Amino acid sequence: MTTYILLINWTDQGIRSAKDSPKRLDAARNLLGSMGGSFDKFYLTMGEYDMVAVCEAPDDRVMARFTLSLAAAGNVRTKTLKAFPEVHYRDIIASLT
């Protein structure tokens, strides 16, 4: 599984119905699960982003399909970061010439 960090902001539509946000999070969890992925952590944040999620998915195509599905619903906009665990980080750095 590949780890992804999602930086999430509510749209105008999403913030107007913020009280429904927990239900939407549950639906997003179920959607990603149906695609073979999972939410590892989820945070409501203060600052530039409204929420941050750490997720896993089988590959980039699954994560792209998932985030496009979220965007199509109109409640959030996301920025997705592909995350490399420390062991891969060390391998990548060690391979530098």
Rank of each mutant, 00 (worst) to 15 (best):
M1I: 00
T2H: 10
T2C: 13
Y4I: 04
I5R: 05
I5D: 01
L6V: 02
L7V: 01
L7P: 04
I8S: 01
N9V: 02
N9Y: 01
W10T: 07
D12P: 12
Q13E: 15
Q13N: 14
G14W: 08
I15D: 05
R16M: 10
R16Q: 13
S17V: 15
A18Y: 09
A18M: 13
K19E: 14
P22L: 07
P22A: 00
A28L: 06
N30M: 14
L31F: 06
S34M: 07
M35V: 00
M35W: 04
M35N: 06
G36D: 00
S38R: 15
Y43S: 10
L44S: 14
L44E: 09
L44G: 11
E48S: 13
D50M: 04
D50I: 03
M51I: 10
M51T: 10
V54H: 07
C55W: 02
C55F: 01
C55Q: 00
C55R: 05
E56C: 11
A57C: 03
P58S: 05
D59R: 07
D59Y: 06
D60R: 13
D60V: 10
R61L: 11
A64P: 01
A64D: 09
T67E: 03
T67A: 05
L68A: 11
S69C: 07
L70I: 05
L70T: 00
A71F: 09
A73C: 09
G74K: 12
G74N: 07
N75S: 11
K79E: 08
T80V: 13
K82H: 08
A83N: 06
F84E: 04
F84H: 11
P85V: 06
P85E: 12
V87G: 10
V87Q: 15
H88L: 15
A94H: 10
S95R: 09
L96C: 09
L96Y: 12
